[in-house]
Structure formats: structure tokens, C-alpha cells
Design a binder for these strands. Structure first.
Lengths: 120, 120
DNA sequence: GCTTGACCTGGAGTGCGCTCCAGGTTGGAG
DNA sequence: CTCCAACCTGGAGCGCACTCCAGGTCAAGC
């Protein structure tokens, strides 16, 4: 059981983002105290960690919503969810290749400056 | 000497983006035909390739403008430009580490589905 | 000389993912 | 009991990087 600020700290999302994720239905079923304040469970935190992973790897929010909706539908969507993640993983691999490629370019450019400015 | 469409094709930017980059002063001194149409030189293309590299690695446009402005100021800004690229390269390295880390998470998650759905 | 498609300009609009705000409530510390 | 920081809601606003549009121009091919 975590207070909103604690959930934010642990997930790396801002409070506003947590509220936003709930508002758009990405995160659902977040509990409330009698006073109306959010209570995050370990399960919620698990979701947030996954969302962190997917966002950091560039998945659009709409796709995360799709994934979350499938998960809510039950066990029989496991195959579809897996396929979704695999497609994403493939895109991430491409992204990593491109990033590496352009990083090499960048390093080359810097090496050029090293020659021009007389090392340094 | 390249027509706008050819420059777009070679750089991977859209025509609108090329015009936009000129409008905000990122790309400057692009020539014109007597009829007012853009003519891109190999030098312009060189800049576009660099911009492609910097964008693909996540550099904000404002920073690319700064770099381009320094380059326009002359040779004496070479050190500053190099520093700018090096700082960026460091950020890219962090980005690559994070991406790799989250990719590993993603693969783990997929492996979990493999166990659950009975391989496949 | 007419058509057609690539191109021009200035400016408005879009999509994404938050982020901020106003105005009000809650709940633990002193 | 009072204070104050953390929290609530609904909704507006923002920053970025384009992207699209209207209305017009240019030039190669028939």
C-alpha cells in the first residue's frame, strides 16, 4: 500500500502523470481511502513499472492502453498481449540499431573536431 | 544541386520539414532559382545528414540551432561546438544504456508469456 | 499556349504527453 | 482545535516538432 507520492517516487512518474494515466483508463481500479485518496498496491506498482519500461522504449500511450485493456479481458488474451510485446520488441531492436548507427556518426564527427582543434 | 523533393528523399526529412528548418533559421543560405525555388547543394545535404543524426539521437531542435549558429560564427567556435557534441554523445550513451536495460525487461516479460502460454 | 505537377509563402492546425491551475478536502502533528 | 502539507477533481494550457492549408507561381511536356 503506497501513498500517491510514494508511488510516484517508486515509478518515476509524476503525480500528475499517475492521475492522467488513471483518467485515460490506462491504470484502472486504483483504490481509495475513505477520504477519497489514492492507494496504490504492489500490483499497481507492477503495472507502473511495466508502463515505465514501455514508455522508455518508445511505445505510444494508445498501445499501452490496448495492452492494458487486453489484460483486463482475461487470460485468453495472453497470446495477443505477447504478440503485441514482441512486435514492440522488434521495433525497439530497430531503434537500438539506428541509435547505435547515429551514435557512431556522432563520434566520427567529434573525432573530426579532435583533428581540427588539435586534439582536446 | 538538388531539387527540394530530391533533398527530402536523400535526407529523410519531409518537404515541409525542410521549409520549417529554414524558417526557424536552422538551415540558412539555401539557394533559389530565378523562379524562387530552393536549390540544395551538397553542403546543405551535409547539414541535413548531421541534423538527421542529431534528431535521431534525440537532440532538441533548439540545441541544433545553437550548434548551427556557432558554425556560422566561424572557426573560432570549433571548441564550443565539439563540447556541445560531446555532451550530447554522453547523453546518447545514457539513453542507449536505458534502452538496453528496458529492452532486457521487455524480453523477460515476453519470456514469462512463453511459459504461461505454453511456448510459442 | 495549355495543362499539370512540383513548388512557393504565410499562417493556422495537429498530435502527443503531459503539466498546471483553481478551488476545495483530508488527516496527522503540535 | 488549528494548521499545513498532501491530496482531490475537472478542465485549461503548454511545448515540441512538425503538418496542413489556401491561394498563387513556375516550368517541362504535349
Amino acid at each position: 500500500m503506497y501513498a500517491p507520492s510514494e508511488a510516484a517516487r517508486r515509478s518515476g512518474f509524476s503525480l500528475d502523470t499517475l492521475r492522467y494515466y488513471e483518467k485515460i483508463g490506462l491504470l484502472s481500479g486504483v483504490g481509495r481511502t475513505s477520504g477519497g485518496r489514492r492507494v496504490f498496491t504492489d500490483d499497481d506498482l507492477g503495472w507502473l513499472v511495466l508502463f515505465r519500461c514501455l514508455r522508455d522504449t518508445g511505445m505510444p500511450i494508445a498501445q499501452m492502453c490496448r495492452y492494458a485493456a487486453l489484460a483486463r479481458e482475461g487470460e485468453h488474451t495472453a497470446g495477443e498481449r505477447k504478440a503485441l510485446l514482441e512486435e514492440h520488441a522488434t521495433r525497439v531492436e530497430e531503434q537500438m540499431r539506428l541509435l547505435q548507427h547515429q551514435y557512431d556518426h556522432l563520434r566520427e564527427k567529434i573525432r573530426y573536431y579532435e583533428d581540427v582543434t588539435g586534439a582536446g
